[in-house]
Simulated scan of single mutants.
Amino acid sequence: MIACPKCGAGSSRVVKTKPNPEGQWRRRVCKKCGGKFSTTETVKTKPGSA
Rank of each mutant, 00 (worst) to 15 (best):
N20K: 06
P5W: 07
V29H: 10
F37H: 07
T45E: 14
K31M: 07
K16H: 15
K44N: 14
G8Q: 01
P47H: 11
G35N: 13
W25A: 15
W25L: 11
S11G: 04
T17E: 14
A50G: 15
P19G: 12
R13N: 10
T42R: 08
G34C: 02
Q24M: 14
S11F: 11
V14C: 11
E41N: 14
P21T: 01
S12I: 00
E41H: 08
K36T: 10
G8F: 03
K32R: 14
A9W: 08
C33A: 08
A50F: 09
G48E: 07
P5T: 10
C30W: 05
I2W: 02
V15D: 09
S49D: 13
C7P: 00
P47S: 12
A3M: 01
K46E: 11
V14K: 09
P19F: 08
K32A: 14
S49P: 00
S38K: 05
A50Y: 11
S49E: 12
A3W: 01
K16R: 15
I2Q: 10
W25I: 01
C33W: 05
C33M: 05
N20W: 04
T39K: 03
Q24Y: 11
M1I: 03
G23K: 02
P21N: 07
R26F: 09
G34H: 06
R13W: 10
C33N: 09
A9R: 01
M1E: 08
G23D: 11
G35F: 14
G10M: 03
K31A: 11
A50E: 07
S12A: 12
F37T: 01
V43C: 07
M1T: 06
P19R: 10
C30T: 02
N20V: 01
K32M: 08
T39P: 04
Q24E: 13
V29N: 06
P19D: 12
R13T: 10
S38Y: 09
K16G: 06
G8S: 08
S11V: 05
P19K: 12
T40N: 13
S12G: 08
K31H: 13
P21D: 08
K6A: 14
R13L: 10
K44D: 09
K32W: 12
R28M: 08
V29P: 01
T42W: 02
A9H: 09
G35E: 10
C33V: 03
A50Q: 14
G34F: 11
K44F: 13
C4Q: 02
T42M: 09
W25V: 01
S49Q: 15
I2C: 02
P19T: 12
S38Q: 13
E22Q: 10
K36R: 13
S12K: 07
T42V: 13
K31I: 03
A3Q: 05
K18G: 00
R13P: 00
G23S: 04
C33Q: 08
V15K: 03
F37W: 15
G34E: 03
